[in-house]
């Protein structure tokens, strides 16, 4: 797989874990978060790729190098923030691939290509589906 330049906004558990996986797979990762403390434990593996600032601000994204990113992942815990990141990534910075996290399943309908989101993923829905499968398997042994 070719090396990609990936920009992740939101250094919560999900953002950090994704960053680690992508780095281990040999990609170049930039992780942006408002809270410098959230980035602290990632400093060693990210180096210059740890950027503290509001990822919903175009100037912060620009400085972080969004212009060279092939993939942007909006992974904050707020759906409105993820939608703004996606919209800016697509419509202002022309990023080829935009992935966004859905926090509240009710908001899933907003995460569309028109709003700059190529792929939406909802941790709550994913986990619920997995649990449902496990429960189904238990109920109907085949």
């Amino acid at each position: 797989m070719p090396q990609l330049r990936v920009l992740i906004v939101g250094a919560g558990k999900l953002g950090r874990q994704t960053a680690k996986l992508l780095i281990n797979a040999g990609n170049h990762v930039i992780l942006v978060d408002k809270d410098p403390a959230a980035l602290h434990e990632m400093k060693d593996i990210l180096g210059d790729g740890a950027v503290s600032g509001d990822g919903c601000e175009p100037t912060v994204l620009e400085k972080a190098g969004i212009g060279q990113a092939q993939v942007v992942i909006a992974a904050t815990g707020h759906d409105e923030d993820n939608l703004v990141v996606a919209e800016l990534a697509r419509r202002i910075f022309d990023v080829p691939r935009v992935i966004a996290r859905v926090n509240r399943p009710e908001n899933e309908w907003l995460f569309t290509p028109q709003r700059g989101v190529d792929v939406a993923f909802s941790p709550a829905t994913l986990v619920a589906k997995m649990v449902e499968e496990v429960v189904d398997r238990g109920a109907s042994p085949s």
Binding site: D79, E80, D81, L83, V84, E87, Q114, R115
Partner: peptide, 15 residues
């Protein structure tokens, strides 16, 4: 008071 909320709501209303 949230700029991002206001932006998302406005884009829903328009689009």
């Amino acid at each position: 008071s949230g700029d991002n909320t206001n932006f998302v709501v406005a884009s829903i209303a328009v689009e």
